[in-house]
């Protein structure tokens, strides 16, 4: 008995929406980063799901997922670095206050 594909896709979509909500509504930069990670996880889940249900024998989807996780780790490190620099500079991590580029 295997889990049907639509269920997995639905879960992925739910995770993505959750992440997007976090990115759009949280004020704290670190929470936004967490939201982005959640959205990435949703994408990875899609890769695995489609690979699992495809007739192809090669592990392409898994490879993609592994790459994507590695890149996500690097991206998280860079993102956290940015947050630290921003904090040092502005003494805050609230994104709504970082509006120096307004027109």
């Amino acid at each position: 008995m295997t889990t049907p594909l639509p269920l997995l896709l639905g879960m992925s979509a739910a995770l993505f929406s959750l992440g997007l909500m976090a990115v759009l509504s949280r004020r704290h930069a670190i929470f936004i980063l967490i939201g982005i990670e959640i959205m990435l996880t949703a994408a990875n889940l899609n890769f695995i799901a489609f690979w699992r249900y495809s007739p192809q024998p090669q592990p392409t989807g898994v490879m993609f997922a592994i790459f994507s996780i590695a890149i996500a780790a690097a991206e998280a490190a860079v993102g956290l670095g940015f947050v630290i620099i921003v904090y040092r500079h502005y003494k805050t991590t609230e994104v709504s206050k970082l509006n120096k580029l307004k027109g």
């Binding site: 759009l24 509006n99 307004k102």
Partner: peptide, 18 residues
């Protein structure tokens, strides 16, 4: 008027994109 759209708030931009 156009420059007023550029609030500098990055989340607004993301919302617009969304």
């Amino acid at each position: 008027a156009v420059s007023a759209w550029h609030s500098g708030n990055i989340q607004n931009y993301l919302r617009a994109i969304g």
